[in-house]
Each structure stands twice: as structure tokens, then as C-alpha cells.
Amino acid sequence: MAETQTGESVVGLKDDAVAALLVAESSEQLEAWRVEFLGRKGRLTTVLRGLGSLDIEQRKVAGAAANHLRVELETLFEERQQQAISTRAPAGSIDVTLPGRKSSLGGLHPSTQMIREITQAFNEMGFQTIEGPEIELERYNFDLLNIPAGHPARDKWDTIWVDSESRGDMLLRTHTSPMQARVMETSDPPVRVVVPGKCYRYESTDATHEWHFNQVEGLAVDEGITFADLKGTLYEFARRIFGASRKVRFRCDYFPFVEPGVDMSIDWNGNWIEILGAGMVHPKVLEGVGYDSSKYTGFAFGMGPERVSMLRNDINDIRHFFANDLRFLTQF
């Protein structure tokens, strides 16, 4: 008995409510309608409260119907309210002389700005900017760079591998260096390129480590390129980015794909901070792409634009770059 009453009530209630809403015009009438049907003691609320007396199966059916109706009525009510406001607004109630809301302009991400500045410096020295794939093959990321499987130096690059059914040799590139091999494979010397791009490492993050970050790679290969050219080119880069008075030093370091290997550091408040790794391209890398290593020499380098930006802008945590916090991003 009770269930039939409630069931009928829902259907009847809907008809009543829709009809009454159509004739409500003023905000007072609309409010009265809301109180009658949707209010705390309104008719629909009463129906919903009555559900408690039903047994479980019937309560499910009736409850669903009543709830559905509630959503429907609320939607209709809002539409009607909007309609009423828009048709009712008398001319002159809006001050058309008020200034419009300013839409905020986006800006370039600080990483992008730094990448552009770095690549620009090298572009002016004859280096072309190119880009490469972020999903890379093991062959380019490691093997062709003189880092065979099992090489202890692979410990330096904790790798995120791509889980693929077809092949097990795909990874997210751990550095931009694979583009060295890709560029040389497809073009003959002379080569002068810079390669900005995203890199990924499987490592925990802290103030100086991120699991994803940018690098800018550089490569110059030709007949007669020397270690002195490497130093001169990178000095010029440092001069442009950090100013002429900044002290720069070159020291010996090790990367499997160069020999001799170089670490370039700059003086920052009395501390030497490494900003890039470099070196003369290893003959195995040249031979791996079919270059004659007795004829051609070259140098390569790689740096982190976030790191450069951190130094120049006194940023104490690399994670700010990727936190998408406008308070940080809008400062650049």
C-alpha cells in the first residue's frame, strides 16, 4: 500500500512541479516553488523521508526514482532561474563602462627560456638546433656511446625501461647524448648541432635531482677540431650565459663516450659548481656510426638548463621547475 502511494506520488509530483515551475516568473515565485518542492519540508523531501518504511527491494526502486526526480527538478530550477534573470535584466543595470576582465597571458616556462638562451648562444657559433625522440633504443642511448651492457659506468644512468611486448630494448632516454649517434648516422661531417630535450632517470628526487629534466647536448665533428676548440667554444658559451667576469675551469672527468673527458665548472660564490660534461668524441663512437676516426675529430658536451637557471636565478630546488606552481613560474 505504502509503496504504491509513494510510487504514484513520484510521478504525480513531477507533473505538479514542472507545471508550477513554468508559471513561476519572479524571483519570489521561484523561491516559493523551491520551498514547496525541494525545501527541507518540501513535497519531494517528504517522499524521500517516507522511503524508510518500505522493505528493501521496493525502497531501492522508489528511492532511485525519487532521487532521479530530485536531480531533474534541481536542474530545471537552475535553468529557469537563469532564464528569469537574463530575460528580466532591465537595460542600464549593467555598467558597460566598467573595464573588461583581463585575460591573463601565459609566459614561457623558465626551462624553455633557458634552453632558448643556451641554444641561441650556440646557434650564433654555427650550431644548428635539432631535436630527437624521448623514447629511445638502448643501442643509441648506450651501446653506440661506448657503454655496452654490463659496463660499470651504466650505474651512472639509472634507467626507466619501456615495458614492451615486442622488444626489450626501449627506454626513456637518460640523456640527450643518443642524438650524437643519430645525427652522425644520417649526415656526413661537418656536424655542428645542439640538441635540447627532456631526459628521464629512475632515481629518487631531492633538491638537486629530478626524475625528469632537460639537457642540451652539443656536438661538433670535422677535420681538425681540437681540444683547444672545445675549450674556446665552451668559454664563449659561459661568457654569454654567465658574463665575462665569471671564472671558469676545465678539469679531467670521465664519460665513456669521450676521451679526453672534461668537466666544466664555474665559480659561484667561491665554490666550483660543475655545469657541464664534455670531451673529445671517443673514436669508438665515431667508428660506430661509420666515420673515419683517423680523419675526423670532434667534441661533445651536455648540460642541464635547469641547473644553469638555478645558478643564475638563485633557485634552491630543481623540483620547483616541474611543480606547476604559478607563484614560481610567473617570476620568470
Binding site: M125, G126, F127, Q128, P190, V191, R192, A220, D222, E223, G224, I225, T226, F227, A228, D229, K231, G232, T233, Y235, E236
Partner: peptide, 12 residues
């Protein structure tokens, strides 16, 4: 202590 030069030759 090694010398410093700029790249010579025509860029590609």
C-alpha cells in the same frame, strides 16, 4: 694550462 681557440672552418 692548454690553449684555447675558437672553431675554425665553415660551419655546416
Amino acid at each position: 694550462n692548454l690553449p684555447t681557440t675558437t672553431l675554425s672552418g665553415r660551419p655546416p
